[in-house]
């Protein structure tokens, strides 16, 4: 269907479907995503992506080598 993209979440490498949002990729592997509204309005799903805090994972598409850190410091 779509190519597999490899991303890193909290230090662990994992596969994601090409075109997936980061939140969808997390949920697909059973990880929590803080998701609530799913459309980028509530900011519940934020994580630090490639060093930038507060990124809304539900509207961010996975990219090869993307580094995601969940929890804590993305207020």
């Amino acid at each position: 269907m779509s190519a597999t993209v490899r991303i890193e979440v909290d230090g662990r490498e994992m596969p994601a479907r090409g075109g997936a949002s980061v939140a969808a990729a997390l949920l697909a592997t059973g990880l929590p995503a803080g998701l609530f509204c799913g459309i980028g309005v509530c900011h519940g799903c934020t994580a630090t992506v490639d060093g930038v805090p507060g990124v809304r994972t539900c509207v961010t598409t996975v990219a090869p080598g993307m580094r995601v850190r969940t929890g804590g410091d993305s207020s």
Binding site: R17, G19, A20, S21, A23, A24, L27, A28, L35, F36, C37, G38, I39, C58
Partner: peptide
């Protein structure tokens, strides 16, 4: 809507 977006957009 979130449930639908995940489903329609990503099949999750």
């Amino acid at each position: 809507g979130a449930v639908q977006a995940l489903h329609k957009g990503h099949g999750v």
